[in-house]
Write a protein that binds this DNA or RNA. Structure first.
Length: 566
RNA sequence: CGGGCUGUGGCGCAGCUUGGUUAGCGCGCUUGACUGGGGGUCAAGAUGUCGGGAGUUCGAAUCUCCCCAGCCCGACCA
């Protein structure tokens, strides 16, 4: 292609409201433009990169036996009601009605739709199956942000596996894990797998692929010594043992005038490790108490996962007062029978603890948790923090901010049962098919590459997804220089290189700056100065390497380098 | 949803406090000339519902009210 005839609207200044690096560079480089919050137009350059990312994903999923589909993005409400997720999904799903007043939704994911197609499977002999599509998803995110990193409309590759048993699911899950690792390698992304919460997808377990990146939104706990890595929504750690005194025969009220915080109570003589923190939560409309140790933080996703809650929020001080009789700072669970109580495992067996007495300015001491509090559910609720000891090997854990680049789920039979996806096994008995689902966002991965591959001049795309693999920069538009450049351009094209000819009537500095900004990995500069010696110049974007090549060998050399790097 | 900030040519901004000619500047764009290996110089131009609506006023980018949009933090989110 000739740059002079292309639409590549590069900007001198990035828009002021583009905060994330990838957002600024993708806009500045003429890859994307925002339509409105969370919705971006892919310009020709951006769409080329997007398609190259999609091609890599497609290639690797095909390699493990995936069959490509294309399913609708607009769904009838009924199919979502059938799985129970019409209500469960809440506000994340865009909903609309058609002219006959039928309720519809825009697809946020496709378990339901693929499962409904899969109901035509009838025999174990047809299994395993691996189906996928690369298609638009709509999610009404509360806060789209950071350019392409979190949007409301995006393309996702989602695949779905169907097996006769758990062993089959395990194999498909494992082959996806390996395919994802290859995809991230080809994209140049340093992704690693972590244990994750399955959230609204359900299922028994899931692995997220994370890329360390300050623009990300997930906190990951990793052990630098063993292979433990988990999303903070799932992570656990080893706690220092706490030795309790026997305490009192019964809790004892004591006055704590003006004391409203853990820290203040600590100064009054009760170490945070010996306090019970009582949080009033509203879980799907029901007021529930969540208890953690005074120095611990509640992780709300853990609470949601453990209790099956869909919508969770902290209660207002008024709600706390109405249900417990005191305002936050003096709340406790001792003697509470009317509310469901969920407590963190770290409180199990603890004695001689201090907690609020449900009367402002009063606390209890000498509380034995299991004796004095009517706990309905013991579970892991506390959020791990960096500096704690690894559960496996006791090494000090680290916390890393990451972008979630992919997520794979073992679903089990939840959806196959809802949609009647069952087959006859070898004994002629009907068995529900075991499903898995596997997602990877195309645009987010594109942005994550930009987020992790750039310098002060622009993006450093890897050859695998660069909008063009090479650019031939013509420095002077006289007949001789242009002819030399064009023959080089044609020679590269004939070797299958995705090459751009910069034939614009612009100054050298402008052409160099643009090529660097949009991140073309190889630049061949053709100018009269070099041609006088029978040479052109090769500039390698990623390494900064700059060298002269004979005109006769230049195309060959560059094509070989590119093909080797793909 | 809570908090903060911002809306002025394609992009980046000034002007608003204290209302007053044709609303400025830089970049970019057009034409011409000189130039031509890292965003060149000079000259001449074009491009604006000042986010929208209502109000106050002789007069509103500027003051008041309502609304909308975008960004950031938090909540939330597969």
């Amino acid at each position: 292609m000739r740059w002079s005839s292309l639409f590549i609207p590069t900007l001198r200044d990035a828009p002021a409201d583009a905060d994330a690096v990838s957002h600024a560079l993708l806009v500045k480089g003429g890859f994307i433009r925002q339509l409105h919050a969370g919705h971006y137009s892919m310009l020709p350059l951006g769409w080329k990169v997007h398609q190259k990312v999609a091609a890599i994903v497609r290639d690797e999923i095909n390699a493990i036996g995936g069959q490509e589909f294309l399913l609708p993005t607009m769904h009838p409400a009924t199919i979502w009601q059938q799985s129970g997720r019409w209500d469960k999904m809440g506000e994340i799903m865009f909903r609309l009605t058609d002219r006959r007043n039928n309720e519809m939704a825009l697809g946020i994911t496709h378990e339901e739709i693929f499962a409904s197609v899969a109901s035509e499977l009838t025999s174990y002999k047809e299994l395993p199956q691996l189906w996928y599509h690369i298609q638009t998803k709509f999610r009404d995110e509360a806060r789209p942000k950071a350019g392409l990193l979190r949007v409301r409309e995006f393309h996702m590759k989602d695949s779905y596996s169907f097996d006769i048993d758990d062993e089959g699911l395990d194999r498909q899950f494992e082959s996806h894990r390996e395919a994802y690792i290859k995809i991230f390698e080809r994209l140049g992304l340093p992704a690693f797998g972590v244990q994750a919460s399955s959230g609204a997808m359900g299922g028994s377990s899931s692995v997220e692929f994370m890329v360390p990146c300050s623009a990300g939104e997930d906190e990951v706990i990793v052990c630098p010594s063993c292979d433990y890595a988990a999303n903070i929504e799932k992570a656990t750690s080893k706690l220092e043992p706490v030795v309790d005194e026997a305490g009192l025969d019964a809790p004892e009220r004591f006055a704590t005038p003006g004391i409203r915080t853990i820290a203040a109570l600590e100064e009054a003589g009760a170490p945070a490790t010996r306090q019970i923190k009582t949080m009033v939560m509203v879980a799907d409309g029901e007021v529930v108490l969540a208890l953690v140790r005074g120095d611990h933080q509640l992780n709300t996703q853990k609470f949601i996962d453990a209790t099956g809650t869909i919508e969770l929020r902290p209660a207002t001080p008024e709600e706390a007062k109405a249900n417990l009789g005191a305002t936050p700072g003096s709340l406790g669970a001792v003697g509470v029978d009317s509310l469901r109580i969920v407590a963190d495992s770290a409180l199990q067996g603890r004695t001689d603890m201090t907690t609020g007495a449900n009367e402002d300015d009063w606390h209890y001491r000498g509380v034995s948790v299991e004796r004095d509090i009517n706990v309905d559910q013991w579970t892991d609720l506390r959020e791990v923090s960096a500096g704690e000891a690894c559960f496996n090997c006791s090494t000090t854990l680290e916390q890393i901010r990451c972008v979630e680049a992919g997520h794979i789920f073992k679903l089990g039979t939840e959806y196959s049962e809802a949609f009647g996806v069952s087959v006859s096994d070898s004994d002629g008995k009907q068995r529900p098919v075991v499903m898995g689902s596997y997602g990877i966002g195309i645009g987010r991965n594109m942005a994550t590459v930009a987020e992790t591959h750039y310098d002060d001049k622009g993006i450093l795309w890897p050859v695998s997804i660069a909008p063009y693999e090479a650019v031939v920069t013509v420095l002077k538009l006289d007949a001789e220089t242009l002819a030399a450049a064009e023959s080089l351009y044609e020679a590269l094209r004939s070797r299958g290189v995705d090459v751009l000819l910069d034939d614009r009537d612009a100054r050298a500095g402008v052409k160099f700056a643009d090529a660097e900004l949009i991140g073309i990995p190889y630049r061949i500069t053709v100018g009269p100065r070099g041609l006088a010696d029978g040479e052109v110049e090769l500039a390698v974007r990623a390494t900064g390497e700059d060298k002269r090549l004979g005109v006769d060998v230049a195309a060959e050399t560059v094509a070989d380098a590119i093909i080797a790097e793909r």
